[in-house]
Amino acid sequence: MDPSTILQYTFAGIKIGGIYAMVALGFNIIYNTTGIINFAQGEFVMLGGMFMVTFSRIMPLGAAFPIAVLAVVIVGCFLERATIWPARNGSVISLIMITIGGSLLLKGLAMKVWGKSSFPLRHFSSEEPIKILEATIQPQTLWIISVLLLVVIVLALFFKFTLTGKAMRACAANRPAASLCGISVDRLVLLSFALSAGIGAVAGIVITPVTLVNYTCGSMYALKGFAAAVLGGLGISTGAVVGGLTIGLMECYGAALPFQGASSYKDGIALLVLLIFLCAKPSGIFGRAAISELKRF
């Protein structure tokens, strides 16, 4: 394979990997405050795309973007209040099933509202590919990378410098202790759902011009995003970004492997990585086993 082709696949990998990274970040935020894996995380991505498609029909993209994110944030908060909050003292298994149920509900509602077809969204800027060293990159890929960077920076600042962010970190480190210090864990859980719904929505909005959106697309984003989160170490932000990009790249290189039908196994790669990591090193690349020992789940 010549270098320009490899570069081409690298761009493609970064593009989709950026999305997985954002989904993984969303998983981490909720996991850190609640210890729950939110199986509905992929639905936030799908809803982001859906709302964006709808709003973009009646207003410019620049205006539709924040409104679509806000809409998904509201959905996220509603989901938390309606399903997670009443079950906050439940067992692991019931919480898992509740978030699965929540994901089905969102998916089913999306199907009723938007139907079963796939929707396109216009690219944020021109669709004219930009040439870099013999390879071309779509401007939308640059959008995705910049948005990912922005999300990471904003999150880092939020967790580092705001009181709420620090409270969330305290909550992640030791929930009972955080609660004893007067941190309202209850509110933080709601906030974490809002935050991760927002990030999911952003991911869904930036990827839709490239891949289209329909009501079923959330599950794959969720699974691969989770794989990314586990790869990097569940709950670790750096890990989410590295994991997401790694999985995106592996998928794109994997699809290019020189055997027949290699591309049809593309969707299996992330899951294989997930299984391998769960078996061999469940704490992920950056995780330490000692920390997960203290987690509730």
Partner: peptide, 28 residues
């Protein structure tokens, strides 16, 4: 390996496993 871990891991591992089987069957 996954049954030694906590609840969520097994759920996700089995979920991933099911999808892999589907992908493989689909890929012929």
């Amino acid at each position: 390996p996954t049954l030694r871990l906590k609840g969520h891991y097994l759920a996700m591992a089995t979920l991933g496993f099911g999808v892999i089987i589907y992908v493989v069957a689909d890929a012929d």
